[in-house]
Structures are given as C-alpha cells and as structure tokens.
C-alpha cells in the first residue's frame, strides 16, 4: 500500500530503492534452487546502501526482511527435496502440500516485489503489511 514518506525522494533515491527489490528478483531467477542466494544478494545490496539516504535504506530493509522470512521456508523445502532425491525420504502428500504452500508464498512475494519495485521507482512509498511496520521500527531516519 502507498504511504506518504517524511520527505519527497529524489530521482537517484527512487532508482536505488527500486533496485533493492530488483536485486531480490534477479536473485530469484538465478538462485531458485539455492534459496540462500536470494537473501545474500539482497543482504549485499543492503550493506552497500546502509549509509544511503533514509528512503533507500528503508526500502533495502523492507526487501531484506521479507527475503529473510522466505529463506526458512525455502531452505526447509530445499533440504527436504535433497533428502527425497538422495536420502530415505519418499514423495508424500505432506511434501506436495509443503511445496504448493511454499510456492504460493514465493509467488505472493514475487508479485509484491515487482509491484514495490515499479511503484518505488515512481517515487511512491510502498509499505507492506507487517514488514513495513517492522521496517519503521528498525530503520530510523
């Protein structure tokens, strides 16, 4: 949802803030089989911009927090799959259900990320439910 930001961000800020979301998108394409790559890419971008302007830092933090929560879900699914391929596990209803649930959450995150990247580029302040409020708490002007 678009909210008002304490100040109106400049062109260079909206570009960097938008890139923080794009970074996780690019990593999603490259790193789907290895979920940690998504988080690492977003983390590096966050570190590179930790001294950036408030608008940039705020959006880098929101992107990072959302990626971090998906990491647990994707990692669990990843190792479960590895255990099925190489270990003793067999494909079960629970496994299929887990993959579908993880897929729905990843897809939701993907759509939200694309939306946030486009809107942020236009200078609109996109604040996600929970992650936005959490970012307000941890990212100060």
């Amino acid at each position: 949802m678009a909210h008002t930001f304490p100040y109106s961000p400049g062109e260079h800020e909206t570009e960097k803030a938008s890139n923080s979301y794009l970074m996780s998108l690019v990593a999603v394409i490259a790193g789907l089989p290895l979920p940690i790559i998504n988080l690492l890419a977003t983390l590096f971008f966050f570190l590179a911009n930790r001294k950036g302007t408030y608008f940039v830092r705020w959006h880098c933090t929101q992107a990072l927090l959302s990626q971090a929560s998906l990491l647990f879900i994707n990692s669990f699914g990843f190792w479960w799959t590895i255990d099925i391929i190489f270990g003793d596990e067999v494909i079960s209803n629970r496994y299929v259900g887990y993959l579908i649930a993880a897929g729905i959450l990843n897809l939701t995150e993907l759509i939200a990320t694309i939306h946030a990247a486009i809107q942020t580029r236009k200078g609109r302040h996109i604040k996600w439910w929970f992650y936005g409020t959490l970012t307000d708490l941890v990212c100060r002007p």
């Binding site: 299929v96 579908i100 439910w129």
Partner: peptide, 22 residues
C-alpha cells in the same frame, strides 16, 4: 501483525499438507 501473519502462514501449510493430493 506478525502473529496474524504467522497464523495465516501456518494455516496455509496445515491445510495444504493435510490434503490428499495423491
């Protein structure tokens, strides 16, 4: 909000993992 999100995600997993997909 975190609690509500957690409950929603858990419900999603419980519902889908309990479905007889086969």
């Amino acid at each position: 909000q975190g609690l509500l999100l957690l409950i929603a995600v858990l419900l999603l997993f419980v519902l889908l993992m309990g479905t007889d997909w086969a």
